[in-house]
């Protein structure tokens, strides 16, 4: 049996609904229509009354999920696109993220963000929001890169008593397949070595893990062994695994698909520079998308975001320094 990243997300939601009566799904077009990407296909029929179509109101959707969580429910919210979560940003960062700290009331909501660029999606259907949400205290931010992680981390997100921003990458929805669903998983908060290597560490997450792996395969034919670290979650960020890798390789490149100012890659570089300066044989580097909105046309989009080719250039440069 083969299962896609998107199907894994659907299956995780089905399992969460089946296992826990407190779970319900809430979002635009997710009911009988099954969602813009069909991540909730047939779930409204399988779980009557627990897969609710919302109004076109991101602020109210998140606000309502918070209220339901206060009542002891565990909502999974689908934002139609990660980009649109900015309309609900206030509820996420000022309400959900502060609730437990202010009032000792847990806020177990999972917010699914269909994230990242795909061909032809343009400035408002391509964004990566993980750096924004990771900036705020009180949120857990997951960025699964594999089918297995998409499944197991979504289930863990629902079980966590805090608000979780679940960044699922649209580019991986159909491209990425696995033989089956996992029965056990590494806990959230642990990064993993996606490919071992001794010459240079490339830290990535979400779709960038696959660009990094493609680059690593190419460089392997030239005799360079790249170690690829998949962060899995960006908050918490597993600094120890990154440092241990840099201790082996002496060189660091952090890759992210989001905009270049600040963010996850800057955080990785800053942590390694401050806690592992002595481990470095060269200045740590990072590679992000360009500092413009995400372009619509594939000719531009393919250059805007880091690709295997762009990462290879950055790694070769790093190995020369």
């Amino acid at each position: 049996m083969s299962i896609t990243y998107l199907e894994a997300i659907r299956e995780a939601q089905a399992k969460a609904l089946a296992d826990d009566p407190r779970v319900f799904l809430y979002g635009q077009d997710i009911g009988s229509f099954g969602g813009a990407f069909k991540a909730t296909k047939n779930l409204a029929k399988e779980f009557p009354g627990r897969v609710l179509d919302s109004t076109l109101s991101e602020d109210a959707i998140i606000g309502a999920a918070i209220g339901a969580a206060i009542e002891g429910m565990r909502p999974i919210v689908e934002m139609q696109y990660a980009d649109f979560s900015t309309v609900g940003f206030n509820q996420i960062v000022n309400h959900a993220a502060t609730l437990f700290w202010r009032t000792e009331t847990p806020c177990p909501i999972t917010i699914r963000l269909p994230s990242g660029g795909t061909n032809g999606s343009g400035p408002f259907h391509s964004q990566n929001m993980e750096s924004l949400y990771a900036h705020y205290p009180g949120l857990v931010v997951m960025t699964p890169a594999t089918v297995e992680d998409a499944y197991s981390m979504l289930l863990e997100a629902v079980a966590i008593d805090d608000p979780v921003i679940f960044c699922e990458h649209k580019y991986l929805y159909y491209h990425l397949k696995a033989d089956g669903l996992p029965t056990e998983a590494e806990p959230v908060g642990k990064a993993k070595i996606a490919r071992p290597g001794r010459d240079v560490t490339v830290v990535a997450y979400s779709a960038m893990v696959h660009e990094a792996l493609e680059m690593a395969r190419e460089l392997a034919t030239e005799g360079t062994e790249v170690e690829v670290v998949d962060l899995r979650s960006v908050k918490p960020l597993d600094t120890d695994t990154v440092l241990a890798s840099v201790a082996r390789t002496g060189r660091l490149l952090a890759v992210g698909e989001s905009f270049p100012w600040g963010g996850v890659t800057a955080e990785v570089v800053a942590r390694v520079a401050s806690a592992g300066f002595g481990l470095l044989d060269a200045a740590p580097q990072r590679l992000n998308a360009k500092d413009t909105p995400v372009p619509f046309h594939p000719n531009l989009w393919g250059t805007h975001r880091p690709t295997a080719r762009a990462i290879a250039i950055a790694v070769r440069e790093l190995l020369r320094s």
Binding site: G63, A64, A68, P75
Partner: peptide, 8 residues
């Protein structure tokens, strides 16, 4: 912001 929370 509290209106949808109560609604939820």
């Amino acid at each position: 912001a509290m209106i949808p929370a109560v609604a939820g």
